[in-house]
């Protein structure tokens, strides 16, 4: 509106509808120009690569480990039906689910407690969740490697408690532990955001009307915090499925997950089309989950 009063062409300074429209067009154009550099960048360096992955997934691996792109076929997707691949897929889904459930069970009471504290305390609590959230992922996994190793502190404590020398490293439990450690903040943050918005008087009203603590949780708190539960579950499940660093450091040969399996296709097996097909499946899962989330009235974080 301001540009109007300053630049109105009419002598009397009254904005005509034509001028309004021209101004509106100009403003849209300016917004587009401002978005353009990032827009073009992401189209070229994100959207195009994404398309290339999909194209590769229909290609063929030659005997020399190169990829033949002409002659589209579904061979790579057919490989998904093989026993070994199914094993990896089921194991990934199972471990990712387990990770998600553990995170949910730990994070829900944590987020709830955080939401009940004073603004000052909860901000502090939030900051101390954010710090591990953003700090070096590799190092945080490596820390568990040190702790869970043969002579490491975990084994010592287990020995002291009478369990005998225990080596958790290179087991599925170690991988799940590492995943929970890495992705727990992804669960806490959306849960907290959802619970914090809930009007506490609704909970009090349900109690006043004779609901037990559990009933009030089950019928009031949980439904109202559902967007947070869904968002957190997606944010933990998807990266767990695609995890590569954690199983690589903490897992053994029998803990190949989808993420590590994809990496193997590119860095050692050199079956690019199959790796691309697996990536496409992972992306499709992610997109489906995101769409479900937004359909169910979730909001962006």
């Amino acid at each position: 509106m301001t540009a109007l009063s300053r630049r109105a062409p009419a002598e009397d300074g009254i904005a005509t509808p034509e001028f309004e429209a021209a101004h509106e067009r100009q403003k849209r154009w300016r917004g587009f120009l401002m978005a353009l550099p990032a827009y073009a960048y992401l189209l070229l360096f994100f959207a195009v690569p994404l398309g290339i992955v999909v194209v590769y997934s229909f290609g063929t691996r030659t005997r020399f480990g190169t990829t033949e792109l002409s002659g589209w076929n579904l061979e790579s997707y057919e490989k998904l039906g093989r026993d070994l691949v199914q094993q990896v897929l089921f194991r990934s889904i199972w471990l990712a689910l387990l990770t998600t459930v553990i995170c949910l069970v730990i994070a829900y009471p944590f987020a709830y407690y955080m939401a009940t504290r004073s603004a000052r305390v909860r901000n502090l609590m939030l900051v101390f969740v954010m710090i591990p959230f953003w700090t070096n992922f590799l190092v945080r996994n490596y820390a568990w490697y040190v702790i869970l190793g043969t002579d490491g502190p975990f084994s010592r404590v287990a020995e002291f408690l009478g369990f005998g020398p225990t080596r958790l490293l290179f087991t599925q439990s170690a991988v799940v532990m590492g995943l929970v450690y890495g992705f727990l903040p992804f669960m806490i943050l959306p849960l907290y955001a959802a619970i914090e918005r809930i009007d506490g008087r609704l909970l009090e009203a349900s109690r006043d009307l004779g609901a037990t603590g559990y009933q009030s949780f089950r019928r009031v708190l949980l439904p109202l915090s559902m967007p947070g539960v869904i968002a957190g579950s997606i944010l933990v499940f998807i990266p767990s499925l695609g995890a590569y660093v954690t199983p690589d450091i903490l897992g053994g040969a029998k803990t190949t997950l989808l993420g590590s399996y994809i990496v193997t296709q590119f860095l050692s097996a050199r079956d690019f089309p199959f790796g691309a097909a697996l990536s496409t499946v992972l992306m499709a899962l992610m997109l489906a989950a995101t769409i479900v989330y937004f359909r169910r009235g979730g909001r962006t974080l």
């Binding site: 992955v53 590119f266 990536s279």
Partner: peptide
Amino acid sequence: PDVTMAVMMLL
């Protein structure tokens, strides 16, 4: 996921 983006950039 990291891995997917890595694959995208590689190809």
